[in-house]
Design a protein around this nucleic acid. Structure first.
Length: 903
RNA sequence: GGCGGCGUGGUGAAAUGGCAGACACAGCGGACUUAAAAUCCGCUGGGCUUAACCGCCCGUGCGGGUUCGAGUCCCGCCGCCGCUACCA
């Protein structure tokens, strides 16, 4: 009685054997153009995984799900004769590593190295065909040197709104110094840089400083004093995307808004291109939509109001300029710069109290109280530019600083939020849009518009026809928008514009474990390091904890900090997303010491095919608006500057679905339903794990784990094993009854060719579960055949190889030892099918009467329509069902069915 | 509230508008075995009918529609999951 469970086949012996073999032989190394062994006659296939963050917890089963899918594609494309680039690396900078290091008192470099080694070991035990010579690690100076270099590209560029692309900042510098006229134009229109709305909301002092520092401000990487998401618990600021429900995505700590000097990347300049250029991509529609919504384009107008005293301008953004006549009050965000200038003495105490209260509230609280509107009157009035009406100016937290201009005109009759607010504070409500065309019912006096003073009974947010709107009356909402915009433009009171929800990317973090900025400060001005000074390594710091004050930990490194007698280094570091923005480019030429990626290598792996880019990118949906948007942005900048050859990085994107625990719940430590891939490999082997992950359902579906499902796949693989191997008396395995002379019978031949066809199509379509079920059918068709035809067995092993590479390679080798054969299965050629063998001479088809199956008959494969119909009519059952009825129509679907329609 | 995805046996799931449930899991029965495991074979959506075969009816969340024919397409609901949230 042995305590160890007997293995159905000796995977524990041959799996490590083949893993070592592939590693020693560098089987999956993909030579670059110009490298020995490179074959330019082959076409390229670049298949990419989202590289993991090597956390202390190790791999979970979600990782190998996507990785197995790409591995299957890579191995398959290799057998189809492609040069396959299938790399792996580590996204190793970032908060968790640093927090873990603080907790354990070890340097993050040490813990990161340990975690990487652990992850790599786990991945290697799964038998993935990676080209490890291209391994990248974002924390490696040889890597982040180029992350810093790309930052300098951004820093030294601006976005030209006319060319709609990034240009070297030197061009702007020259243009502006040569052409004072143009400089004046640009200074007056800083919004050309793509920050129109932000500029409109600024106070004059801020604007003046902007104009003065136009060149600095125009850069794609610039410094801003804007309010940011500050998390005191983490001791850093966070990007909008990293804040969820007013809490940090990492750790769930409270986040407050605080003005700080930060580095920003001007992603908003690319908003339109980031939307438009999604069109040509083979991505899930849902992800495209998610990105579009995140960028949040909306068309409308900016309209200038003046305070009643006429001293201040208040600019608002609205998507409904047609409702301008219905604006009965205005609202500024509590933080709006203008509030201090317009608030009256009597209202100051109330305003100050309200502002303090909002500042203390997290975004979460603000959302929670969404139902109950709050606000305070400033005591000031504005003038509605179209009708000269005095309307009160309020502050309220339902108006956000971060969107539009931070100020709105409130049209309570046609906006739900304004409606609620007006109801609560008894502000006037005037209907200016009617759902049906009708005449104004107001008085027609003094050339002014007719105004109906009775308040509408409910809020109407739809489009319709303008009423109570002076010259707009009777216009459809669409026409009214165009007309009012025209009028406003004429009077220089407004203009048509496009607003985006997307904010510029807050790019600095007050952390130790990230890329230092290649920037020094002198006399309050920043300037770039020279590329030759890269990489800029972080200082060796014994104490790298956050200071808690917002001062970055790098400031503690006094020697490092000093760049020269006059200049000091920037102490912020880059966010974790930086390294992952371009890693797919580094893979193309990972060892290049002279460039971030060699030109030839980039052209070959990223260019190549028609649309270009990575041919297949597989990863989780959680990166839909973070990594995938940032990477596209960086790529476009590099493209504009001529450093890469395609405008988009990832041509085809597929999201693998979430794997739930056996209880149908999300896997989590607290639920105790987490599956560790290592345990599964020990028990069932890597091939069984890979096979199960692919068999459990469609790649993109969310699906629960099942241990007995793994056993099912293990049983199938064991059946394949025994198809080739026979167990000996002593328990060892030897080649079984396989014969080179044996031929598959007709039915088997059909199964073989149907399998080649289906498995090929299914792999291309990433439908791995159905490919495997076909391979089971293939296998089952031969289990009772002895001896097994060698050709059939070899075809089966070839088709199964991408899924179960160890098992099939081992069996292939055993067959070769007896029958002789050149080479390894990994290098074999993918089989082709013969369409003629797929169809039997006779086919069974269904006979229907009024769509219901009543009989089945066997017809010759090339029987004519008429012959099939005649045969159908001669069926006794059909005669029975159609007896005494008029046959109105007979539909013959060749090879499928005959449907007889009776009255 | 908005956007997106999904509803098919006991379970995971198949199905270019053409015979619903392939392939597995679990279950039941059998063979082999002293016995068990492993393996192999058979059955396995629900109901009615029959001694049995046969045969018939119902069935893809619900209600309509298009079609010779709908799990699949269209319209309207219900339920679950994910993302997002005062975006002017």
């Amino acid at each position: 009685m042995s305590t160890a469970r007997r293995k159905p086949y000796p995977f524990d012996i041959f799996e490590p054997k083949w893993q070592q073999h592939w590693d020693r032989q560098q089987t999956f190394h993909a030579p670059n153009p110009g490298e020995l062994g490179f074959d330019s006659a082959k076409s390229k296939y670049y298949v990419l995984d989202m590289f993991p963050y090597p956390s202390g917890a190790g791999l979970h089963v979600g990782h190998p799900e996507g990785y197995t899918a790409t591995d299957i594609l890579g191995r398959y494309k290799r057998m189809r004769g492609c040069n396959v680039l299938h790399p792996m690396g580590w996204d190793a900078f970032g908060l968790p590593a640093e927090q873990y290091a603080i907790k354990t008192g070890q340097h993050p470099a040490v813990t990161t190295a340990q975690n990487v080694a652990h992850f790599k070991g786990q991945l290697q035990r799964l038998g993935f065909g990676y080209d490890w010579q291209r391994e990248v690690n974002t924390t490696d100076p040889g890597y982040f040197r180029w992350t810093q270099w790309i930052f300098l590209q951004l820093y030294n560029s601006y976005y030209d709104p006319e060319l709609k692309k990034a240009q070297p900042i030197a061009l702007l510098e020259d243009a502006l110094s040569l052409d004072p006229q143009r400089k004046a134009e640009w200074s007056e229109n800083v919004y050309l840089l793509g920050t129109h709305s932000a500029y409109a909301g600024m106070d004059e002092e801020h604007r003046a400083s902007l104009r003065e520092n136009l060149l600095q401000y125009a850069r794609l990487a610039y410094v801003s004093e804007a309010p940011v998401n500050w998390c005191s618990e983490l001791g850093t600021v966070l990007a909008n995307e990293e804040v969820i429900d007013g809490k940090s995505e990492v750790g769930g700590h409270p986040v407050e808004r605080r003005p700080m000097r930060q580095w920003m990347l001007r992603i908003t300049s690319y908003a339109q291109r980031l939307i438009d250029e999604l069109d040509g991509l083979d991505w899930p529609e849902g992800i495209k939509l998610l990105q579009k919504n995140w960028i949040g384009r909306s068309e409308g107008a900016e309209v200038e109001f003046k305070t009643a005293e006429g001293s201040e301008r208040i600019i608002v953004f609205t998507t409904r300029p047609d409702t301008l006549y219905g604006a009965t009050y205005m609202v500024l965000a509590p933080e709006h710069a203008l509030v201090e200038k317009i608030v009256t003495e009597e209202q100051w105490p109330a305003v100050r109290e309200y502002r303090d209260k909002t500042a203390r509230k997290s975004d979460l609280d603000r959302t929670d109280l969404a139902k109950d509107k709050t606000g305070v009157w400033t005591g000031a009035f504005a003038v509605n530019p179209v009708n000269g009406e005095r309307i009160p100016i309020w502050i309220a937290d339902y108006v956000l600083t971060g969107y539009g201009t931070g100020a709105i005109m409130a049209v309570p009759a046609h906006d739900e939020r304004d409606w609620e607010f007006a109801k609560k504070f008894a502000l006037p409500i005037r209907e200016v849009v009617s759902s049906s065309p009708r005449l104004s019912v107001g008085l027609a006096g003094g050339g002014g518009s007719g105004v109906c003073n009775s308040e509408p009974l409910e809020c109407f947010v739809g489009e319709g026809f303008a009423v109570n709107s002076g010259p707009l009356d009777g216009f459809s909402s669409e026409d009214a928008k165009a007309e009012i915009t025209r009028l406003l433009t004429e009077q220089r009171l407004g203009f048509q514009t496009v607003n985006y929800k997307l904010r510029d990317w807050l790019f600095s973090r007050q952390r130790y474990w990230g890329e230092p900025f290649p920037i020094v400060w002198e006399n309050g001005q920043h300037r770039a390091l020279d590329a030759s000074e890269l990489p800029l390594r972080p200082p060796e710091l014994a104490d790298f904890k956050p200071t808690g004050t917002g001062e970055p930990p790098l400031a503690k490194a006094t020697d490092w900090l000093r760049y020269s007698d006059k200049a000091t280094r920037e102490t912020n570091t880059m966010p974790q997303w930086a390294g992952s923005c371009w890693y797919y480019l580094r893979y193309c030429d990972a060892q290049n010491a002279a460039r971030f990626v060699g030109t030839d290598a980039e052209r070959y792996w990223m260019g190549g095919g028609q649309p270009g880019g990575v041919d297949l990118y597989v990863g989780g949906t959680e990166h839909a608006v973070l990594h995938l948007l940032y990477a596209r942005f960086w790529h476009k900048v590099l493209f504009d500057l001529g450093h890469v050859s395609t405008p988009e990085p990832f041509q085809r994107l597929v999201n693998q679905g979430l794997i739930l625990g056996e209880d149908g719940q999300k896997m989590s430590k607290s639920r105790g339903n987490v599956v560790n891939p290592d345990d599964v490999i020990v028990e069932y082997g890597a091939d069984a794990l890979r096979g199960y992950l692919m068999f459990m359902g469609p790649l993109e579906a969310t699906k629960p784990w099942s241990m007995s499902g793994v056993e099912g796949i293990a049983r199938f693989l064991a059946r394949v094993w025994r198809l080739v191997m026979a167990e000996q008396q002593d328990g060892s395995w030897a080649l079984g009854a396989v014969s080179a002379e044996a031929e598959p019978d007709k039915a088997q031949l059909r199964v073989i060719h149907a399998s080649i066809k289906k498995v090929t199509a299914d792999i291309e379509a990433l439908s791995f579960n159905t490919a495997l079920s076909q391979l089971m059918i293939f296998t089952n068709a031969f289990v009772n055949t002895t001896p097994r035809p060698l050709s059939a067995v070899r075809t089966l092993l070839t088709l199964l190889n991408p899924f179960a590479p160890h098992l099939t390679e081992e069996l292939w080798q055993n067959l070769a030892a007896r029958f002789g054969d050149a080479g390894e299965l990994a290098d074999a050629v993918w089989p082709a099918w013969d369409e003629r063998l797929l169809i039997d001479d006779e086919i069974e088809i269904a006979l229907q009467v009024n769509g219901k199956v009543r009989d089945k008959i066997v017809v010759l494969k090339d029987a004519t329509r008429e012959a099939v119909e005649a045969q159908a009519r001669s069926s006794a059952k059909i005669a029975e069902w159609t007896a005494g009825k008029e046959i109105k129509k007979v539909i013959v679907v060749p090879g499928k069915l005959v449907n007889i329609v009776v009255a």
